[in-house]
């Protein structure tokens, strides 16, 4: 979709990125920060996958009856590995957050800064 010469998909992706970035820097709760990081990451995935799309294109499956043009397979393969990396990052971060709470009893960054 591109009314007024602006690619709405890219605009939406950029807006999602900004929402995630705002959560990451403005929220003081560590879990909200991590949710923001996840929103940012998925918006980047959406950008990469969207860049490989073709108008009326089929998925990159060269089976009988499939017609070119095909969507580009490279962005999709990159994003597949990326999704699994994100869940790894999230799992490690969540484990650390649980440890921080058990140790300090709070998840708010400004309170954590005042602790010795």
């Amino acid at each position: 979709m591109a009314p007024f010469g602006v690619d709405l998909d890219y605009v939406a992706v950029a807006a999602l990125f900004c929402i995630g970035l705002y959560m990451l820097v403005a929220k003081s709760n560590l879990l909200k920060k991590l949710l923001g990081l996840n929103v940012m990451e998925t918006s980047v995935f959406a950008f990469i996958v969207t860049s490989g799309m073709v108008e009326g294109g089929d998925p990159p499956l060269l089976v009988a009856g499939a017609q070119p043009p095909f969507a580009s397979p490279i962005p999709q393969a990159m994003v597949l590995t990326g999704i699994v990396v994100v869940v790894s990052v999230t799992a490690v971060a969540l484990s650390l957050i649980v440890q921080i709470y058990a140790h300090y009893g709070t998840l708010e960054v400004d309170e954590l800064k005042e602790r010795p």
Binding site: S51, E55, S72, P75
Partner: peptide, 20 residues
């Protein structure tokens, strides 16, 4: 950015075209 739905976008050249 190039319009993402266009078949002539750069992402569909180079190795992408060869893979397909």
């Amino acid at each position: 950015l190039p319009t993402h739905d266009a078949p002539e976008a750069p992402i569909h050249d180079h190795v992408g075209a060869r893979y397909v």
